[in-house]
Design a protein around this nucleic acid. Structure first.
Lengths: 205, 205
DNA sequence: TTATAATATTTTGTATACAATTTTATAAAA
DNA sequence: TTTTATAAAATTGTATACAAAATATTATAA
């Protein structure tokens, strides 16, 4: 068991992050005031500042304000994901071992049988994570994670809707991996993310 | 003219970054102690901490120590660059306007006629930056910049050596762009960065 | 009224003190 | 000697006070 000591910094970071995700700062725009947060969270300004700095670096905050990405921003995030994930997908087609392929199958299966959309979203993330891992490149993994959280964060509306075709597309990607066809896998991944982007834009616009 | 007010934070950041680049912290390993830096730079610990946090996020520092990347780290950085820059290169082949192509030519020209290797390095960066800009994606641009600085930083030895073929390879990339051949441009860029990596590893190992 | 200047208020930046923790040095036991 | 325990020192984390800057408010002139 790993002992995690919750320093004031970590408490502040998690609390503020949570608040952002729950949309408590009025959908962007609203300014984060250090002292108000300090009082609310019950620590001094120092760890609050650390937390804000970190969230700033992670791309959630800009100029003390929660960012509200434009359509262009979203497109850029997705473009970055498409590049990395299609690359990882072709690696997966070449090298992914059976155990991990089984995990992909499982993620698809759970998503199929589950009623609730939250579970579908979760398995979608699992599916993508498994593939990105095949890049075996921590920088790429980290980058995709950043993109994912920001995309997720600012398209919470999307979470409420079931995207048509999502699971079928996963199935196609899986099929291409099983056939050990890197080109096809990469292509299917690109198309899949492209549909995701279009769906997201359609909903939040 | 843009007025920049140098806050203590900025002074601290620049000073520490400079020290890292100049290898003043004994090639990695050495621990950065807040108070010592504070005294040296002449500000309090607060802005020092901010600066360290920032440099940590940018990947120069880890656990209060200047990072010393392993060969694997370098390979990962280059892999990320290859992915983005080859993508940008194909965009350049498709869309780069003549004015910018002229700038590429110019960068090659200056590098060719210059005696001093520092200038060659500078024009090399200029050449790559011009191409990466063609991605028109700030996230990609930012990512490559991060990779570049860290690669540069930790291969200072490389700067002292003239890499054979570097300018010729630029010429080949330029040629492919002029011929409006995205596939070829992308390929040449990959090969070019691959040679860079091999050369870098050869020297610092 | 609108625009401008003066003033008050809020918010952030910085220094500093002290507490908590980590690291290092020292002494005792194997 | 090496290992382990204990004490000392160094370092980081946190709170807080005050100064500097940014922002909002009010008063005054056009």
């Amino acid at each position: 068991m790993t002992k995690i000591k919750k320093t004031a910094q970590i408490i502040a970071y998690e609390s503020i992050r949570e608040s952002i995700i729950n949309g408590e700062f009025a959908g962007g725009g609203m300014k984060l005031v250090e002292e108000k947060l300090a009082i609310k969270i019950g620590v001094s300004r120092t760890p609050i500042r650390d937390a804000i700095r970190r969230l700033e670096q992670e791309g959630f905050i800009n100029n003390k304000k929660v960012i509200k990405p434009t359509e262009t921003d979203l497109r850029n995030q997705f473009e970055m994901r498409m590049l990395i994930e299609s690359y990882a997908a072709s690696k997966a087609a070449s090298y992914m071992i059976d155990d991990d392929i089984a995990k992909l199958k499982n993620a698809i299966h759970i998503a199929r049988i589950s009623e609730d959309n939250g579970e579908v979203i979760k398995q979608n993330k699992e599916f993508h994570d498994l593939i990105v891992l095949e890049s075996r490149n921590p920088i790429m993994i980290e980058t995709v994670n950043r993109m994912q959280s920001i995309i997720y964060l600012f398209s919470r509306a999307v979470v409420l809707h079931k995207r048509p075709g999502l699971i079928d597309e996963h199935e196609e990607i899986l099929k291409a991996i099983i056939e050990r066809d890197p080109e096809m896998t990469s292509q299917k991944m690109k198309e899949h993310l492209h549909s995701d982007l279009e769906f997201t834009l359609r909903i939040i616009k």
